[in-house]
Design a protein around this nucleic acid. Structure first.
Lengths: 218, 218
DNA sequence: TAGATTGTTAATCGATTAACAATC
DNA sequence: TAGATTGTTAATCGATTAACAATC
């Protein structure tokens, strides 16, 4: 109906970064900021900042710039941070537990309802108020609970199978830490990947390049 | 000297993905692959695959395609995976420990030498063979050990300060999990960011959009 | 050889930057 | 009002895709 304007992924990826900088400014009691000043701080062009923001509305004022608090709140709305989300974590290993223990997510409205694992040693454990449940009851659990987001922190071997089960049972958002690309033909699902291995390889590539560029020191 | 051709970040980000798919093919005993077939599997154009690979050399053969094992190994070399890297983890909290416990990194040649933390409760702990050392001795440690990569898993409040200390003491690669953008003017340092909060916000944005697109079910 | 598929040049598309009129 | 800075259109730049000659 509202036929929203298409926003490119490149823009979307910059939104959390704007949000972060605005939050920092707010913490420093800076009340207004121009695109030029923000440009210097963020290391991107003022033109890009204005283009990006204007995808979502005219938040600034000529001759003045942007009101930090207002823009911060608007960005929060755009990012969907004023809603509360129910979250389950699939895989209660080191990474799953680390995420469950990370309090900042709760603060932003991401409520961890439960964790799931196949390991009997982990089942029954309580991680900062959330119980680790048996993966065997996951399907039933999803029928009884309205879950917004599933976090996938299981090995790639079982990731595709479990992801399909999640989607077949109504999950439409997956935060995927498994080293596979998930595809759900015919379903409306959003997936955000955190491919740690890929990230580390990219670093390794860059380090190799850096070292080959720099001639030996004398 | 070797005046390497400039490779765009967009290409670099795709390299680990190629490497992953080639590894999967290899595991399935598939010995050859054409750009057309790989295109179908990866969901990117064959043209892009050929362009990307040809940044680094002509790995294929007309009429045949690419030899999977050969290309896999070449990609590994390009990514710098045949070297061994010494790694320290700064911040032995949940995330730092999770990364230290993740055995796949060791397998790829990233050896975790030590972890560092300020918390007395953690200092002295042994995480899968690596000791948690006092952050106070970090500077001295760096003088005595040749460390390739530092993993930054500390809160953003101290991240900038510690990162500067690392770089001042010879670290030239940082895998940054703190929610800040690190800058090192005048130093040659490569930084790879894993901004988990940003990633989760992106997911939240996408979920919000997905839900506003889809009209109510009847 | 004929068929397949690469490597590479050229065309297109999209994203970034520049410019400037509008306006606070 | 004059100065500053936005919102937006136009220009540029870079990345992706298409096309095809080269060649295995």
């Amino acid at each position: 109906m509202k036929s929203e304007k298409y926003i490119s992924p490149a823009v979307i990826r910059r939104l959390p970064r704007y949000y972060r900088y605005l939050g920092d400014l707010l913490a420093k009691d800076i009340t207004r900021i121009s695109s030029g000043e923000l440009s210097k701080r963020m290391g991107i062009t003022a033109s890009q900042i204005r283009q990006d923001l204007n995808n979502f509305g005219g938040f600034g004022q000529q001759g003045y710039g942007y009101n930090v608090e207002y823009l911060y709140k608007e960005m929060g709305k755009i990012l969907g941070l004023y809603k509360s989300y129910s979250v389950i974590i699939i895989g209660a290993g080191n990474l799953g537990q680390a995420l469950a223990n990370y309090t900042n997510f709760e603060k932003r409205g991401f409520r961890i309802e439960a964790l799931f694992d196949v390991n009997p040693q982990l089942i029954g454990l309580n991680i900062r108020g959330s119980e680790v449940l048996d993966m065997a009851i996951l399907e039933g659990y999803l029928r009884d609970h309205a879950i917004d987001i599933a976090v996938l922190t299981i090995p790639k071997t079982s990731a595709v199978e479990v992801a399909n089960l999640l989607v077949d049972n109504g999950i439409s958002a997956i935060w995927n830490f498994a080293s596979v690309d998930l595809k759900f033909p015919g379903h409306s699902v959003v997936v955000e990947n955190v491919h740690l291995s890929d990230s580390l390889m990219t670093l390794s590539y860059q380090l190799k390049e850096l070292r080959s560029e720099t001639p030996l020191e004398e």
